[in-house]
Amino acid sequence: MTQEQVERLCQIAPKYGLYLEHQGSVITKVDEQTTDLDTAKYMPDQFIDLLSQMIATKMKADLWQWQ
């Protein structure tokens, strides 16, 4: 991904309930979690799929921990 694409992704992510922070082309936060995801290694579709998998994993964990 290019830095412009990362900036755009960070702008539109809240529309889908996801909050991203970046420094250049590196995503530094996904919601409250600090991370170091270098988006330059991904095509945009691949990175969005990765984010979707992260969300699904969090949802599954929340479901199983629900009491």
Rank of each mutant, 00 (worst) to 15 (best):
E7I: 07
W66Y: 11
T28G: 08
V6H: 01
Q11N: 10
G24E: 09
L18K: 02
I48Q: 06
T2Y: 08
K41G: 03
I12P: 01
K60M: 11
I12A: 02
T2G: 10
Y16W: 08
I12G: 01
K60W: 03
K29S: 05
R8I: 08
Q5A: 13
G17R: 04
L50W: 07
V26P: 00
I48T: 11
G17A: 03
M1H: 07
I27D: 00
Q11D: 12
Q33I: 10
T39M: 11
T2M: 13
Q46T: 07
M43H: 14
F47H: 08
L9S: 00
I27N: 01
K58G: 01
R8F: 09
E7T: 10
M54C: 08
G17K: 07
L63S: 15
I27H: 00
M59E: 14
M54Y: 08
D49F: 09
I55N: 01
M1Y: 06
Q3W: 00
P14E: 09
A56E: 12
V6R: 01
Q33L: 06
V26W: 01
K58F: 05
Y16N: 09
F47D: 02
M43I: 13
T35L: 13
A40M: 06
Y42W: 14
Q5E: 15
L37H: 13
E4N: 12
M1Q: 05
T2H: 05
I12V: 08
R8T: 14
C10R: 02
Y16V: 04
T57S: 07
F47V: 07
I12K: 01
K41I: 03
H22P: 00
D62H: 14
Q46C: 04
Y16C: 05
D62N: 15
A61W: 06
E4W: 03
D45N: 13
P14D: 06
T35Q: 08
I55P: 00
V30C: 07
T2V: 10
L63H: 12
R8N: 12
H22N: 13
A56K: 10
E21R: 10
T34F: 08
W64L: 14
D62R: 15
G24S: 12
H22Y: 10
V6K: 02
E21C: 03
M1A: 10
Q46H: 12
W66H: 09
Y42V: 02
I12L: 05
S25T: 08
S52G: 15
E32M: 10
L51F: 04
T57W: 03
L50Q: 07
K60Y: 07
E32D: 15
D62P: 02
T35M: 13
D45V: 07
L51A: 05
D36N: 14
W64H: 12
T35S: 13
Q46Y: 03
T28V: 11
Y42Q: 04
Y42H: 09
